[in-house]
Design a protein around this nucleic acid. Structure first.
Lengths: 217, 217
DNA sequence: CCTAACGTCACATGATGATGTGACGCGGCC
DNA sequence: GGCCGCGTCACATCATCATGTGACGTTAGG
Protein backbone atom coordinates (compact mmCIF):
# COMPACT_ATOMS: atom_id res chain seq x y z
CA UNK A 1 0.00 0.00 0.00
CA UNK A 2 1.52 3.32 -0.98
CA UNK A 3 -0.41 5.30 1.61
CA UNK A 4 -0.39 3.82 5.09
CA UNK A 5 -3.61 3.27 7.02
CA UNK A 6 -4.36 6.21 9.25
CA UNK A 7 -5.18 5.00 12.74
CA UNK A 8 -6.77 6.95 15.57
CA UNK A 9 -6.66 5.56 19.07
CA UNK A 10 -8.96 6.36 21.98
CA UNK A 11 -7.87 4.98 25.33
CA UNK A 12 -8.08 6.74 28.65
CA UNK A 13 -5.31 4.84 30.42
CA UNK A 14 -2.11 6.76 29.62
CA UNK A 15 0.18 3.75 29.96
CA UNK A 16 -1.89 1.53 27.77
CA UNK A 17 -2.41 4.35 25.32
CA UNK A 18 1.30 4.83 25.03
CA UNK A 19 2.09 1.18 24.57
CA UNK A 20 -0.65 0.63 22.02
CA UNK A 21 0.44 3.71 20.20
CA UNK A 22 3.96 2.40 20.12
CA UNK A 23 2.80 -0.98 18.88
CA UNK A 24 0.86 0.57 16.04
CA UNK A 25 3.64 2.96 15.15
CA UNK A 26 5.95 -0.02 14.80
CA UNK A 27 4.04 -1.22 11.79
CA UNK A 28 5.15 0.31 8.49
CA UNK A 29 1.64 0.05 7.04
CA UNK A 30 0.13 2.13 9.78
CA UNK A 31 0.29 5.76 10.70
CA UNK A 32 -0.96 6.79 14.10
CA UNK A 33 -2.70 10.10 13.52
CA UNK A 34 -3.85 10.47 17.09
CA UNK A 35 -3.92 8.82 20.49
CA UNK A 36 -6.50 10.47 22.69
CA UNK A 37 -7.72 9.95 26.22
CA UNK A 38 -11.39 10.75 25.68
CA UNK A 39 -13.86 11.03 22.85
CA UNK A 40 -15.81 14.10 23.83
CA UNK A 41 -14.71 15.80 20.64
CA UNK A 42 -14.91 12.63 18.61
CA UNK A 43 -16.62 14.24 15.65
CA UNK A 44 -14.16 17.11 15.51
CA UNK A 45 -11.25 14.70 15.99
CA UNK A 46 -12.37 12.61 13.07
CA UNK A 47 -12.83 15.58 10.81
CA UNK A 48 -9.45 16.95 11.72
CA UNK A 49 -7.43 13.75 11.66
CA UNK A 50 -9.26 11.90 8.89
CA UNK A 51 -8.48 8.42 10.18
CA UNK A 52 -9.19 5.27 8.21
CA UNK A 53 -9.49 3.12 11.29
CA UNK A 54 -10.33 3.97 14.88
CA UNK A 55 -9.54 1.85 17.89
CA UNK A 56 -12.03 2.81 20.55
CA UNK A 57 -12.01 1.99 24.23
CA UNK A 58 -15.48 1.80 25.75
CA UNK A 59 -15.03 2.92 29.31
CA UNK A 60 -13.70 6.43 29.15
CA UNK A 61 -14.38 9.47 31.31
CA UNK A 62 -16.91 11.99 30.05
CA UNK A 63 -18.33 10.03 27.18
CA UNK A 64 -18.39 6.32 26.58
CA UNK A 65 -16.76 4.92 23.52
CA UNK A 66 -20.14 3.69 22.38
CA UNK A 67 -21.57 7.17 22.35
CA UNK A 68 -18.45 8.36 20.58
CA UNK A 69 -18.89 5.60 18.05
CA UNK A 70 -22.49 6.59 17.46
CA UNK A 71 -21.52 10.16 16.77
CA UNK A 72 -18.66 9.24 14.54
CA UNK A 73 -20.79 6.89 12.48
CA UNK A 74 -23.40 9.60 12.13
CA UNK A 75 -20.96 11.85 10.31
CA UNK A 76 -18.40 9.45 8.87
CA UNK A 77 -19.84 5.99 8.39
CA UNK A 78 -17.01 4.97 6.11
CA UNK A 79 -14.49 5.09 8.93
CA UNK A 80 -13.87 1.65 10.37
CA UNK A 81 -14.27 1.60 14.12
CA UNK A 82 -13.03 -1.32 16.15
CA UNK A 83 -14.02 -1.43 19.79
CA UNK A 84 -11.18 -2.44 22.05
CA UNK A 85 -12.21 -3.07 25.60
CA UNK A 86 -12.20 -5.27 28.64
CA UNK A 87 -15.96 -5.67 28.64
CA UNK A 88 -17.41 -8.82 27.29
CA UNK A 89 -20.99 -8.60 28.50
CA UNK A 90 -23.83 -9.04 26.09
CA UNK A 91 -25.34 -5.62 26.57
CA UNK A 92 -22.20 -3.70 25.74
CA UNK A 93 -21.47 -5.84 22.74
CA UNK A 94 -25.01 -5.43 21.51
CA UNK A 95 -24.99 -1.70 22.04
CA UNK A 96 -21.69 -1.28 20.29
CA UNK A 97 -22.82 -3.26 17.28
CA UNK A 98 -26.09 -1.40 17.03
CA UNK A 99 -24.13 1.81 17.18
CA UNK A 100 -22.21 0.70 14.13
CA UNK A 101 -19.04 -0.98 15.37
CA UNK A 102 -17.04 -2.72 12.65
CA UNK A 103 -15.15 -4.94 15.04
CA UNK A 104 -14.94 -5.82 18.69
CA UNK A 105 -11.76 -6.98 20.35
CA UNK A 106 -10.86 -7.58 23.95
CA UNK A 107 -7.83 -5.94 25.46
CA UNK A 108 -6.34 -9.30 26.14
CA UNK A 109 -5.98 -9.69 22.37
CA UNK A 110 -2.40 -10.33 21.35
CA UNK A 111 -0.52 -7.50 19.64
CA UNK A 112 -0.15 -9.54 16.49
CA UNK A 113 -3.86 -10.26 16.30
CA UNK A 114 -4.52 -6.59 16.89
CA UNK A 115 -2.40 -5.56 13.93
CA UNK A 116 -4.05 -8.27 11.86
CA UNK A 117 -7.42 -6.91 12.88
CA UNK A 118 -6.67 -3.50 11.50
CA UNK A 119 -5.81 -5.02 8.18
CA UNK A 120 -8.89 -7.18 8.31
CA UNK A 121 -11.28 -4.34 9.00
CA UNK A 122 -9.71 -2.33 6.20
CA UNK A 123 -10.48 -5.16 3.82
CA UNK A 124 -14.14 -5.22 4.76
CA UNK A 125 -13.90 -7.75 7.54
CA UNK A 126 -15.14 -7.55 11.09
CA UNK A 127 -12.46 -8.59 13.54
CA UNK A 128 -13.88 -10.10 16.69
CA UNK A 129 -12.45 -12.30 19.37
CA UNK A 130 -13.91 -15.80 19.12
CA UNK A 131 -16.03 -15.46 22.23
CA UNK A 132 -17.50 -12.19 21.05
CA UNK A 133 -18.25 -13.65 17.65
CA UNK A 134 -20.18 -16.46 19.27
CA UNK A 135 -22.08 -13.99 21.43
CA UNK A 136 -22.97 -11.97 18.38
CA UNK A 137 -24.49 -14.97 16.69
CA UNK A 138 -26.43 -15.76 19.84
CA UNK A 139 -27.88 -12.28 19.83
CA UNK A 140 -30.00 -13.21 16.85
CA UNK A 141 -33.52 -14.33 17.52
CA UNK A 142 -33.66 -18.08 17.85
CA UNK A 143 -36.90 -18.11 16.02
CA UNK A 144 -38.96 -20.39 13.91
CA UNK A 145 -40.90 -23.25 15.36
CA UNK A 146 -38.21 -25.90 15.32
CA UNK A 147 -39.80 -28.80 13.64
CA UNK A 148 -40.56 -31.98 15.45
CA UNK A 149 -42.56 -34.58 13.64
CA UNK A 150 -45.68 -32.62 12.82
CA UNK A 151 -44.92 -29.82 10.46
CA UNK A 152 -46.38 -26.65 11.82
CA UNK A 153 -45.64 -24.15 9.10
CA UNK A 154 -46.68 -21.20 11.23
CA UNK A 155 -45.76 -18.82 8.51
CA UNK A 156 -46.94 -20.85 5.58
CA UNK A 157 -48.89 -18.06 4.00
CA UNK A 158 -49.85 -18.28 0.35
CA UNK A 159 -48.48 -15.70 -2.04
CA UNK A 160 -51.70 -13.74 -2.02
CA UNK A 161 -51.88 -13.84 1.74
CA UNK A 162 -48.38 -12.52 2.12
CA UNK A 163 -49.25 -9.77 -0.30
CA UNK A 164 -52.29 -8.75 1.69
CA UNK A 165 -50.37 -8.94 4.94
CA UNK A 166 -47.75 -6.70 3.44
CA UNK A 167 -50.36 -4.09 2.65
CA UNK A 168 -51.78 -4.33 6.15
CA UNK A 169 -48.33 -3.59 7.49
CA UNK A 170 -48.21 -0.55 5.24
CA UNK A 171 -51.32 0.70 6.98
CA UNK A 172 -53.82 -0.10 4.25
CA UNK A 173 -57.45 -0.67 5.20
CA UNK A 174 -59.58 -3.46 3.75
CA UNK A 175 -61.08 -1.00 1.34
CA UNK A 176 -57.71 0.29 0.21
CA UNK A 177 -56.37 -3.21 -0.30
CA UNK A 178 -59.41 -4.13 -2.34
CA UNK A 179 -58.99 -1.06 -4.51
CA UNK A 180 -55.25 -1.48 -4.80
CA UNK A 181 -55.49 -5.06 -5.97
CA UNK A 182 -58.71 -4.71 -7.87
CA UNK A 183 -60.56 -7.32 -5.86
CA UNK A 184 -63.69 -7.29 -3.75
CA UNK A 185 -63.55 -6.21 -0.16
CA UNK A 186 -65.08 -9.49 0.79
CA UNK A 187 -62.18 -11.28 -0.80
CA UNK A 188 -59.85 -9.19 1.28
CA UNK A 189 -61.80 -10.23 4.33
CA UNK A 190 -61.48 -13.81 3.31
CA UNK A 191 -57.72 -13.58 2.92
CA UNK A 192 -57.28 -11.78 6.18
CA UNK A 193 -59.37 -14.30 8.02
CA UNK A 194 -57.12 -17.06 6.77
CA UNK A 195 -54.06 -15.07 7.71
CA UNK A 196 -55.41 -14.74 11.23
CA UNK A 197 -55.93 -18.46 11.47
CA UNK A 198 -52.48 -19.26 10.21
CA UNK A 199 -50.75 -16.76 12.42
CA UNK A 200 -52.93 -17.49 15.42
CA UNK A 201 -53.90 -13.90 15.90
CA UNK A 202 -57.26 -12.16 16.25
CA UNK A 203 -56.73 -8.61 15.08
CA UNK A 204 -55.00 -6.51 12.50
CA UNK A 205 -52.59 -5.08 15.00
CA UNK A 206 -51.49 -8.50 16.16
CA UNK A 207 -51.05 -9.62 12.59
CA UNK A 208 -48.96 -6.57 11.76
CA UNK A 209 -46.91 -7.01 14.88
CA UNK A 210 -46.27 -10.66 14.17
CA UNK A 211 -45.49 -9.98 10.56
CA UNK A 212 -42.89 -7.37 11.38
CA UNK A 213 -41.34 -9.33 14.19
CA UNK A 214 -41.06 -12.53 12.25
CA UNK A 215 -40.22 -10.97 8.95
CA UNK A 216 -43.09 -12.67 7.18
CA UNK A 217 -43.35 -9.96 4.64
CA UNK B 1 -6.62 -33.77 23.42
CA UNK B 2 -6.93 -37.46 24.22
CA UNK B 3 -10.20 -37.89 22.35
CA UNK B 4 -10.28 -36.41 18.87
CA UNK B 5 -13.06 -34.11 17.75
CA UNK B 6 -15.78 -36.05 15.98
CA UNK B 7 -16.65 -34.32 12.73
CA UNK B 8 -19.66 -34.95 10.52
CA UNK B 9 -19.70 -33.57 7.01
CA UNK B 10 -22.69 -32.82 4.79
CA UNK B 11 -21.89 -31.99 1.18
CA UNK B 12 -23.79 -33.14 -1.86
CA UNK B 13 -20.98 -32.86 -4.36
CA UNK B 14 -19.20 -36.23 -4.23
CA UNK B 15 -15.84 -34.89 -5.30
CA UNK B 16 -15.81 -32.04 -2.86
CA UNK B 17 -17.13 -34.35 -0.16
CA UNK B 18 -14.28 -36.73 -0.75
CA UNK B 19 -11.60 -34.09 -0.76
CA UNK B 20 -12.92 -32.36 2.34
CA UNK B 21 -13.22 -35.68 4.06
CA UNK B 22 -9.64 -36.43 3.21
CA UNK B 23 -8.50 -33.05 4.42
CA UNK B 24 -10.21 -33.54 7.75
CA UNK B 25 -8.99 -37.10 8.11
CA UNK B 26 -5.45 -35.83 7.67
CA UNK B 27 -5.64 -34.00 10.96
CA UNK B 28 -4.75 -36.11 13.98
CA UNK B 29 -7.12 -34.15 16.22
CA UNK B 30 -10.11 -34.92 14.09
CA UNK B 31 -12.12 -38.01 13.42
CA UNK B 32 -14.51 -37.98 10.50
CA UNK B 33 -17.53 -39.91 11.73
CA UNK B 34 -19.53 -39.35 8.58
CA UNK B 35 -19.54 -37.68 5.18
CA UNK B 36 -23.04 -37.55 3.80
CA UNK B 37 -24.61 -36.23 0.63
CA UNK B 38 -27.87 -35.01 2.10
CA UNK B 39 -29.36 -34.13 5.47
CA UNK B 40 -32.80 -35.62 5.19
CA UNK B 41 -32.04 -37.88 8.13
CA UNK B 42 -30.03 -35.25 9.94
CA UNK B 43 -31.55 -35.91 13.33
CA UNK B 44 -31.03 -39.64 13.06
CA UNK B 45 -27.51 -39.11 11.74
CA UNK B 46 -26.60 -36.96 14.68
CA UNK B 47 -28.00 -39.39 17.19
CA UNK B 48 -26.20 -42.27 15.58
CA UNK B 49 -22.85 -40.64 14.93
CA UNK B 50 -22.68 -38.29 17.92
CA UNK B 51 -20.54 -35.66 16.23
CA UNK B 52 -18.96 -32.76 18.09
CA UNK B 53 -18.82 -30.56 15.04
CA UNK B 54 -20.81 -30.59 11.83
CA UNK B 55 -19.79 -28.99 8.57
CA UNK B 56 -22.96 -28.31 6.67
CA UNK B 57 -23.41 -27.37 3.06
CA UNK B 58 -26.50 -25.26 2.42
CA UNK B 59 -27.58 -26.19 -1.07
CA UNK B 60 -28.32 -29.87 -0.98
CA UNK B 61 -31.01 -31.93 -2.69
CA UNK B 62 -34.08 -32.82 -0.69
CA UNK B 63 -33.49 -30.63 2.30
CA UNK B 64 -31.45 -27.48 2.63
CA UNK B 65 -28.65 -27.39 5.11
CA UNK B 66 -30.46 -24.63 6.94
CA UNK B 67 -33.46 -26.83 7.53
CA UNK B 68 -31.14 -29.62 8.59
CA UNK B 69 -29.41 -27.23 10.95
CA UNK B 70 -32.72 -26.21 12.45
CA UNK B 71 -33.65 -29.79 13.14
CA UNK B 72 -30.30 -30.67 14.55
CA UNK B 73 -30.28 -27.71 16.90
CA UNK B 74 -33.74 -28.66 18.06
CA UNK B 75 -32.53 -31.98 19.40
CA UNK B 76 -28.82 -31.40 19.99
CA UNK B 77 -28.05 -27.74 20.57
CA UNK B 78 -24.65 -28.55 22.01
CA UNK B 79 -23.35 -29.76 18.67
CA UNK B 80 -21.38 -27.06 16.89
CA UNK B 81 -22.59 -26.56 13.36
CA UNK B 82 -20.52 -24.60 10.88
CA UNK B 83 -22.15 -23.72 7.59
CA UNK B 84 -19.86 -24.19 4.64
CA UNK B 85 -21.22 -22.87 1.41
CA UNK B 86 -20.80 -20.80 -1.69
CA UNK B 87 -23.65 -18.48 -0.81
CA UNK B 88 -22.85 -15.14 0.63
CA UNK B 89 -26.17 -13.36 0.35
CA UNK B 90 -27.67 -11.66 3.35
CA UNK B 91 -30.80 -13.73 3.48
CA UNK B 92 -29.06 -17.06 3.68
CA UNK B 93 -26.60 -15.84 6.24
CA UNK B 94 -29.40 -14.42 8.32
CA UNK B 95 -31.49 -17.54 8.06
CA UNK B 96 -28.60 -19.76 8.99
CA UNK B 97 -27.74 -17.71 12.03
CA UNK B 98 -31.33 -17.58 13.19
CA UNK B 99 -31.46 -21.32 12.79
CA UNK B 100 -28.57 -21.60 15.21
CA UNK B 101 -25.41 -21.77 13.13
CA UNK B 102 -22.18 -21.56 15.14
CA UNK B 103 -20.07 -20.49 12.22
CA UNK B 104 -20.32 -19.59 8.56
CA UNK B 105 -17.53 -20.18 6.11
CA UNK B 106 -17.35 -19.89 2.37
CA UNK B 107 -16.13 -22.77 0.29
CA UNK B 108 -13.30 -20.67 -0.97
CA UNK B 109 -11.89 -20.77 2.55
CA UNK B 110 -8.40 -22.20 2.62
CA UNK B 111 -7.94 -25.71 4.02
CA UNK B 112 -5.81 -24.39 6.83
CA UNK B 113 -8.40 -21.85 7.87
CA UNK B 114 -11.01 -24.57 7.73
CA UNK B 115 -9.11 -26.77 10.14
CA UNK B 116 -8.51 -23.75 12.36
CA UNK B 117 -12.22 -23.05 12.30
CA UNK B 118 -13.07 -26.45 13.70
CA UNK B 119 -10.77 -25.84 16.59
CA UNK B 120 -12.16 -22.36 17.06
CA UNK B 121 -15.76 -23.46 17.16
CA UNK B 122 -14.86 -26.20 19.64
CA UNK B 123 -13.42 -23.56 21.93
CA UNK B 124 -16.59 -21.52 21.89
CA UNK B 125 -15.73 -19.30 18.96
CA UNK B 126 -17.72 -18.55 15.86
CA UNK B 127 -15.59 -18.92 12.77
CA UNK B 128 -16.70 -16.67 9.95
CA UNK B 129 -15.04 -15.38 6.86
CA UNK B 130 -14.32 -11.66 7.19
CA UNK B 131 -16.98 -10.60 4.74
CA UNK B 132 -19.61 -12.68 6.46
CA UNK B 133 -18.63 -11.29 9.84
CA UNK B 134 -19.12 -7.78 8.55
CA UNK B 135 -22.47 -8.73 7.08
CA UNK B 136 -23.53 -10.17 10.39
CA UNK B 137 -22.77 -6.94 12.19
CA UNK B 138 -24.69 -5.03 9.55
CA UNK B 139 -27.71 -7.20 10.15
CA UNK B 140 -28.22 -5.51 13.49
CA UNK B 141 -30.67 -2.67 13.63
CA UNK B 142 -28.94 0.64 13.14
CA UNK B 143 -31.22 2.12 15.72
CA UNK B 144 -31.50 4.88 18.23
CA UNK B 145 -31.77 8.49 17.28
CA UNK B 146 -28.13 9.31 16.64
CA UNK B 147 -27.57 12.69 18.14
CA UNK B 148 -27.16 16.35 17.57
CA UNK B 149 -27.75 18.25 14.35
CA UNK B 150 -31.30 17.88 13.13
CA UNK B 151 -33.32 16.75 16.08
CA UNK B 152 -36.43 15.32 14.59
CA UNK B 153 -38.29 14.02 17.60
CA UNK B 154 -40.88 12.27 15.47
CA UNK B 155 -41.58 10.08 18.38
CA UNK B 156 -41.85 12.67 21.08
CA UNK B 157 -44.42 10.62 22.87
CA UNK B 158 -45.17 11.11 26.52
CA UNK B 159 -44.56 8.24 28.91
CA UNK B 160 -48.21 7.28 28.98
CA UNK B 161 -48.45 7.44 25.24
CA UNK B 162 -45.49 5.16 24.79
CA UNK B 163 -47.07 2.78 27.23
CA UNK B 164 -50.32 2.67 25.31
CA UNK B 165 -48.49 2.30 22.04
CA UNK B 166 -46.60 -0.62 23.48
CA UNK B 167 -49.85 -2.35 24.35
CA UNK B 168 -51.21 -1.70 20.87
CA UNK B 169 -48.15 -3.40 19.47
CA UNK B 170 -48.87 -6.35 21.73
CA UNK B 171 -52.23 -6.65 20.07
CA UNK B 172 -54.33 -5.17 22.86
CA UNK B 173 -57.66 -3.57 22.00
CA UNK B 174 -58.88 -0.28 23.45
CA UNK B 175 -60.94 -2.21 25.93
CA UNK B 176 -58.06 -4.40 27.00
CA UNK B 177 -55.76 -1.45 27.43
CA UNK B 178 -58.34 0.33 29.55
CA UNK B 179 -58.78 -2.74 31.74
CA UNK B 180 -55.07 -3.41 31.93
CA UNK B 181 -54.23 0.09 33.08
CA UNK B 182 -57.38 0.69 35.09
CA UNK B 183 -58.45 3.73 33.10
CA UNK B 184 -61.49 4.61 31.06
CA UNK B 185 -61.76 3.51 27.48
CA UNK B 186 -62.32 7.12 26.54
CA UNK B 187 -58.96 7.97 28.02
CA UNK B 188 -57.42 5.29 25.89
CA UNK B 189 -59.10 6.84 22.88
CA UNK B 190 -57.69 10.18 23.86
CA UNK B 191 -54.15 8.86 24.16
CA UNK B 192 -54.34 7.02 20.89
CA UNK B 193 -55.66 10.03 19.10
CA UNK B 194 -52.67 12.04 20.28
CA UNK B 195 -50.34 9.24 19.29
CA UNK B 196 -51.77 9.31 15.79
CA UNK B 197 -51.21 13.02 15.55
CA UNK B 198 -47.65 12.79 16.74
CA UNK B 199 -46.75 9.89 14.52
CA UNK B 200 -48.69 11.22 11.56
CA UNK B 201 -50.68 8.05 11.14
CA UNK B 202 -54.39 7.37 10.86
CA UNK B 203 -54.89 3.81 12.06
CA UNK B 204 -53.79 1.28 14.61
CA UNK B 205 -51.94 -0.78 12.05
CA UNK B 206 -49.94 2.19 10.85
CA UNK B 207 -49.11 3.12 14.41
CA UNK B 208 -47.97 -0.40 15.21
CA UNK B 209 -45.94 -0.56 12.05
CA UNK B 210 -44.25 2.73 12.73
CA UNK B 211 -43.61 1.84 16.34
CA UNK B 212 -41.93 -1.40 15.48
CA UNK B 213 -39.92 0.02 12.63
CA UNK B 214 -38.66 2.98 14.57
CA UNK B 215 -38.20 1.18 17.84
CA UNK B 216 -40.44 3.61 19.67
CA UNK B 217 -41.50 1.01 22.16
C1' DC C 1 -61.32 -38.59 -11.24
C1' DC C 2 -61.78 -36.76 -6.95
C1' DT C 3 -59.86 -33.96 -3.30
C1' DA C 4 -57.51 -30.18 -1.29
C1' DA C 5 -55.83 -25.73 -1.37
C1' DC C 6 -56.25 -21.35 -3.36
C1' DG C 7 -58.48 -17.14 -4.82
C1' DT C 8 -62.66 -15.19 -5.70
C1' DC C 9 -67.36 -13.16 -4.04
C1' DA C 10 -71.79 -12.41 -1.16
C1' DC C 11 -74.77 -11.36 2.93
C1' DA C 12 -75.54 -10.50 7.74
C1' DT C 13 -74.78 -9.06 12.55
C1' DG C 14 -72.34 -7.40 16.42
C1' DA C 15 -67.99 -5.45 18.13
C1' DT C 16 -64.47 -2.14 17.71
C1' DG C 17 -62.16 1.87 16.02
C1' DA C 18 -61.99 6.86 14.25
C1' DT C 19 -63.28 11.51 14.89
C1' DG C 20 -65.33 15.63 16.97
C1' DT C 21 -66.34 18.35 20.90
C1' DG C 22 -65.94 19.49 25.51
C1' DA C 23 -64.27 19.39 30.33
C1' DC C 24 -61.32 19.16 34.79
C1' DG C 25 -57.14 19.07 37.75
C1' DC C 26 -52.00 19.32 37.80
C1' DG C 27 -47.54 20.96 37.15
C1' DG C 28 -44.10 23.71 34.72
C1' DC C 29 -42.74 28.06 32.41
C1' DC C 30 -42.34 33.02 31.29
C1' DG D 1 -51.06 34.66 36.99
C1' DG D 2 -52.11 33.04 32.68
C1' DC D 3 -50.63 29.47 28.91
C1' DC D 4 -49.59 24.87 27.71
C1' DG D 5 -48.89 19.94 27.79
C1' DC D 6 -50.31 15.94 30.19
C1' DG D 7 -53.59 12.59 31.92
C1' DT D 8 -58.10 11.86 32.90
C1' DC D 9 -63.22 11.23 31.45
C1' DA D 10 -67.80 11.70 28.72
C1' DC D 11 -71.10 11.56 24.84
C1' DA D 12 -72.15 10.98 20.04
C1' DT D 13 -71.89 9.33 15.24
C1' DC D 14 -70.15 7.05 11.39
C1' DA D 15 -66.75 3.94 9.40
C1' DT D 16 -64.36 -0.21 9.70
C1' DC D 17 -63.40 -4.70 11.32
C1' DA D 18 -64.49 -9.56 13.06
C1' DT D 19 -67.02 -13.65 12.40
C1' DG D 20 -70.09 -17.06 10.52
C1' DT D 21 -71.96 -19.31 6.60
C1' DG D 22 -72.06 -20.46 1.98
C1' DA D 23 -70.60 -20.77 -2.88
C1' DC D 24 -67.88 -21.17 -7.50
C1' DG D 25 -63.96 -21.89 -10.71
C1' DT D 26 -59.01 -23.30 -11.15
C1' DT D 27 -55.09 -25.93 -10.39
C1' DA D 28 -52.10 -29.43 -8.60
C1' DG D 29 -51.68 -34.10 -6.86
C1' DG D 30 -52.82 -38.74 -5.45
Amino acid sequence: MPTPTRVLLYEDNPDLRASLSQLLAGSPDLQVVGALGHCRQAVADVERLAPDVILMDIDMPGMTGIEGLRRIKAVAPQVNVVMLTVFEDNDRVFEAICAGADGYLLKKTSPIRLLDAIGEVRLGGAPMTPGIARQVLRLFPRSKAPVLANEEPVGHLSAREQEVLGLLVEGYSYKMIAADRGISIDTVRSHIKKIYEKLHVRSMTEAVSKALRQGLT
